[in-house]
């Protein structure tokens, strides 16, 4: 640019090239732990039951100990989450009389009131004692209540003994 006596020198000084790429960032955080095939379980020991009616629970083991999935009470187990569950039930019916008719079943009741029974053992006695065991897989879409019911004629001295129920919530 020019006026009568002064000259202005106007030019651009280019900036330097871009610096090198910075070093690699730090490693990402560890991924989550892989799934286990089990989410939670409850193992219940039932009291001996010499009369017709619902079996009462003597002792529960819940794992992990803080699991909210299972809430037991005196004669039932509340399952609080939908999912797939494995049931393993075993026990003995002792003190049977000849030709006595006796059965034990598992009652499953949904939170909306729907109820059904699963027969665990139905016996016409030909011996003093019978063992039973069942394994099954049930899928629940709602909360459920589980009870065990002994059906017998109370004139007999038979009883359900050493009944155990193991319920496992599967992780798939």
């Amino acid at each position: 640019m020019q006026n009568s006596s002064n000259y202005t020198l106007d030019f651009i000084i280019p900036i330097g090239p871009t610096g090198p790429t910075g070093p690699q960032g730090i490693e990402g955080i560890t991924g989550p732990t892989g799934p286990a095939s089990l989410s939670a379980l409850i193992f219940s020991d039932f009291n001996s039951m010499p009369k017709q009616g619902y079996l009462t629970i003597y002792k529960n083991t819940i794992l992990p100990t803080n699991s909210p999935v299972f809430i037991p009470s005196s004669d039932q187990i509340n399952i609080t989450e939908p999912g797939n569950y494995e049931f393993i039930i075993s026990g003995t019916i002792g003190g049977l009389s000849a030709n006595e008719i006796i059965s034990i079943s598992m009652e499953v009741q949904s939170e909306d009131g729907m109820k059904y029974s699963v027969m665990l053992a139905s016996i016409v006695a030909d011996a003093n004692q019978e063992c039973f065991a069942q394994t099954m897989l049930l899928t629940f879409e709602k909360k459920q209540t589980i009870k065990l019911y002994l059906r017998k004629n109370d004139i007999y001295n038979s009883s359900a003994e050493t009944v155990n129920l193991l319920i496992k919530k599967l992780a798939f």
């Binding site: 910075g22 730090i26 990402g28 955080i29 989550p32």
Partner: peptide, 15 residues
Amino acid sequence: GTTGANGLPGKQGPT
């Protein structure tokens, strides 16, 4: 120019 800053941390690893 000076070396750039460290990059961002990597993505979380797989399950």
